[in-house]
Design a binder for these strands. Structure first.
Length: 551
DNA sequence: ACTATATGGCGCC
DNA sequence: TGGCGCCCCTATAG
């Protein structure tokens, strides 16, 4: 259960010299068992020899090998400190910029921007602007002006789950627009799951729709029994959820694999329902428009981001669908009018420091913009009618890029009429009673406060994919191959037992486990994750910070 | 208890 | 501009 100390492959485990007298092992047990050698100081032959010696160590009394236990930081290769887990706490390398905010001079531990109840907002544009009065006003005075901000309801307990549902990591989730209990999910293999999470056992995975990553899905508003999908195989699919029968609307790689430099992958996807146009964008910076009725590409593709750079996301304005928001690897989110669309015709360009994983208009009024960037910052523009030159706020949040994870995307709560609640998974782990867990954060984007962090001791993996239900107080999240449904719960004894029956474990021998979720006396191995046997019981409570925000 | 692997972004030359 | 090597909290199968 305790997090494994990750051992980079970069340091062969060879003892070079040993100082036999001053066997100074055993201060930090975590690192004792192995001595890392400076790269390249011993050859493989030597290694073999060493092993040999050990095995035939019978009585060939050799001179005791002297080694200086030089501990070297795996990050900066210098000695005197070591980065890595100490128990369930990760210690940063002090020589590198802060892993959280990316600024030099401190580590995550002491980062002034650490996501916390009050320090979430980075001192970026607004604080540094000359207009400090305005900042003061916003921060201290105007906050007493009552706003239409109902209390946030946080779905903080796992209500049901399908463990190892997909065969590869989950990449996207969508709630059905009208049927409340239906959740669809896409994965890295291109498969599409349909799950009725109230009936729990009613689920299916369709496997023949795409050949690789299903990056984005969108329900067809004209027929919500069908779903569009954009995939790295270069196709846009339209799938009937009842039958799983799928057709390809677009295939950007009609001649097959000609090497990585020509292979087109589709990422961004959205639908302009007014015009019946499906919009999809690829890794070459191009936007394709598809007539949803004839299923034909209309016009020629438009370059909406830097040539040969990936367009990671598309979003049509909820009230004015001719307004399109795109984001991409060129470090920009851009606003377009699709009635006047041509290469370089963007209305606004919102600059970021790194790749932009996602950009969304706010769900109800569409007047705000929310972006998630690989520079570990969530950015908010308060009004698309106001000054768009710089974001209204930058919220430092751990959402590092990792090629092996689905990119993090901060998602609006579509039910929140104040358009201020956002959910986003956290990359960096936190020590919760001796266990390293990666919570899912709820952030009030009007002030950067962490409203709640939810986690479950049985979810040991990072949860980058999260979606809030359009009508119910329900959160769906994708963590690795599994999907979880969260609801606000008291978690009484009775409830916990019920919940345990709604945990489905897929795999070799599928079974529904009985037991108690997050229970003191119960089965720790609830989710059947691979844990070592000497697991200690852990008690982790999701934190919901201050029922009332103090503005 | 290992290792291989996935095809991502960036900086450097 | 292209190719290459590097890379701090991955997760899984075999």
């Amino acid at each position: 259960m305790a997090p494994q100390t990750r051992r980079g492959p970069s340091f062969p485990k060879i003892v070079i010299e040993r100082d036999s007298d001053t066997e100074d092992s055993s201060e930090e047990e975590d690192f004792d068992d192995e001595v890392q050698k400076l790269a390249g100081e011993a050859s493989d032959d030597e290694q073999a020899e060493e092993k040999d010696d050990a095995s035939t160590s019978t009585k060939r009394k050799r001179e005791p090998i002297t080694i200086s236990l030089k501990r070297v930081c795996k990050v900066c290769k210098q000695s005197g400190h070591e980065a890595g887990f100490r128990g369930a706490t990760y210690i940063d390398c002090p020589m590198k910029p802060c892993f959280l905010c990316k600024l030099p001079g401190h580590t995550t531990m002491t980062c002034p921007h650490k996501v916390a109840t009050e320090f979430g907002v980075s001192p970026a544009p607004l604080k540094n602007s000359h207009n400090s009065l305005k900042y003061l006003f916003d921060r201290q005075l105007r906050c007493h002006v009552p706003k239409m901000k109902p209390a946030f309801v946080i779905p903080n307990k796992v209500n049901c789950a399908v463990i190892r549902y997909h065969s590869r990591r989950v990449t996207c989730l969508e709630f059905h627009p009208t049927k409340n209990n239906i959740l669809i999910s896409g994965d890295k293999k291109g498969q599409l799951g349909v799950w009725d999470y109230e009936k729990v056992h009613e689920r299916i995975v369709y496997g023949n729709i795409h050949s690789c990553i299903l990056n984005n899905m969108k329900y067809n508003p004209l027929n919500d029994g069908t779903v569009y999908g954009a995939s790295s195989d270069g196709t846009v699919s339209c799938t009937d959820l009842e039958t799983g029968i799928s057709s390809s609307l677009v295939n950007l790689n009609p001649t097959g694999w000609q090497g990585p430099s020509s292979w087109k992958m589709l990422y961004g996807l959205d639908l302009n329902s007014d015009k019946g146009i499906l919009l999809a964008a690829d890794n070459f910076g191009l936007l394709y428009m598809i007539d949803a009725r004839s299923n034909n590409v209309t016009g020629k593709p438009i370059l909406i981001h830097k040539k040969k750079s990936k367009v990671t996301g598309l979003h049509c304005h909820p009230l004015q669908p001719d307004l399109l928001l795109s984001c991409g690897n060129d470090h920009f989110a851009r606003i377009w009018d699709i009635r006047r669309l041509e290469d370089g015709s963007s209305i606004y360009n919102l600059q970021h420091k790194r790749v932009v994983n996602s950009a969304y208009f706010s769900p109800q009024s569409g007047s705000k913009i929310l972006t998630t960037s690989q520079d570990n910052r969530i950015r908010v523009w308060d009004s698309i009618f106001g000054d768009l030159d710089s974001p209204s706020r930058e919220i430092v949040h751990s959402q590092d890029f990792n090629r092996h994870l689905t990119p993090f995307r901060a998602e609006w709560d579509p039910k929140d009429i104040s358009e201020s609640l956002v959910v986003v998974g956290r990359y960096i782990s936190e020590n919760y009673n001796g266990v390293a867990l990666h919570p899912i954060d709820f952030i009030d984007i009007t002030n950067g406060q962490l409203v709640a962090e939810v986690m479950d001791p049985n979810i040991m993996t990072i949860t980058p994919v999260n979606k809030l239900h359009p009508r119910d107080d329900v959160l769906a999240s994708g963590s690795s191959r599994s999907i979880f449904i969260w609801k606000p719960q008291e978690n009484t004894e009775l409830e916990r037992e019920e919940v345990a029956n709604r945990i489905i474990i897929c795999g070799k021998a599928e079974k529904s486990r009985k037991g108690k979720l997050d229970d003191d006396s119960g089965d720790d191995d609830m989710f059947d994750s691979k844990k070592n046997s000497k697991t200690k019981k852990i008690h982790v409570k999701s934190k919901v910070h201050g029922g009332k925000r103090k503005c």
